[in-house]
């Protein structure tokens, strides 16, 4: 991530010079800084709403019930999290919001899930090595990757835009969206599992070398 954040501005400046659009690049810096604050304010209300609702749902036991339903699938993807624990519950909530296509609700729930994973793993997870703080764990990456691949069943935004542009049947892209989503989701899970395995092996080899 930090490499990408370093490369983008440099690429933008070079391209700006080539295309002669450096003035636009320069004004983009200031405009977007303001836009980020506007976005954060919009997000803030939604974030507070869902964090509050989730707390009520949690206290009422609704979260536990739902995560019971999803946990067989979820526990295949996440290693070593306590069954029925808070992290598992939050992951299930986040994934349900994704599937329902709740858009902005998924971010607050995802963040709650990340925090719960961190809380559980940083202290007392037997069997899984607790990563040094500041470094992502396999479970955190799995959750993030699932969130970057689209789990949404009804692509409401895409359909609404199609309707706005006069598509005859806006929802007729549904089968295509499902198939493409399934492919990219499968690729995401496989890539995360494979890269996780490689990185664990490498880490093991490195610590093994230190012992000798």
């Amino acid at each position: 991530m930090k490499i990408i954040l370093a490369v983008i501005p440099v690429a933008a400046i070079i391209c700006g010079i080539i295309t002669g659009r450096l003035p636009e690049v320069s004004s983009a810096v200031l405009d977007k800084a303001g836009e980020a604050v506007t976005l954060a304010i919009t997000l803030c209300g939604i974030m507070c709403l869902w964090s509050g609702l989730m707390k009520v749902a949690e206290e009422a036991g609704a979260v536990k019930a739902l995560s019971g339903l999803l946990s067989p699938v979820v526990s295949l993807l996440f290693r070593g999290l306590e069954k029925g624990g808070r992290a598992m519950q939050m992951i299930c909530m986040n994934l349900s919001a994704n599937i329902l296509g709740l858009g902005n609700a998924t971010t607050p729930l995802g963040i709650r899930a990340m925090e719960a994973i961190q809380e559980e793993e940083a202290g007392y997870v037997p069997g899984v090595e607790s990563p040094p703080s500041g470094e992502a764990s396999d479970n955190m990456i799995m959750l993030t990757v699932l969130n970057t691949a689209s789990l949404q069943v009804i692509p409401a935004t895409a359909a609404a835009l199609r309707a706005a542009h006069g598509a005859e049947r806006p929802m007729d892209i549904l089968p295509c969206v499902w198939i493409v989503s399934a492919y990219s989701l499968a690729a995401a899970v496989c890539a995360a599992k494979l890269l996780g395995w490689i990185s664990r092996r490498r880490k093991k080899r490195r610590s093994g070398g230190a012992d000798n």
């Binding site: 961190q118 500041g134 992502a136 969130n147 691949a149 890539a191 890269l195 490689i198």
Partner: peptide, 24 residues
Amino acid sequence: YFSAVKIRKTRYAVPAALTADCTA
């Protein structure tokens, strides 16, 4: 997601996520 839990090293998160985008 990662800045909310103050994680700086995202390890293989970007390559794994981009694999999905490339597949799409």
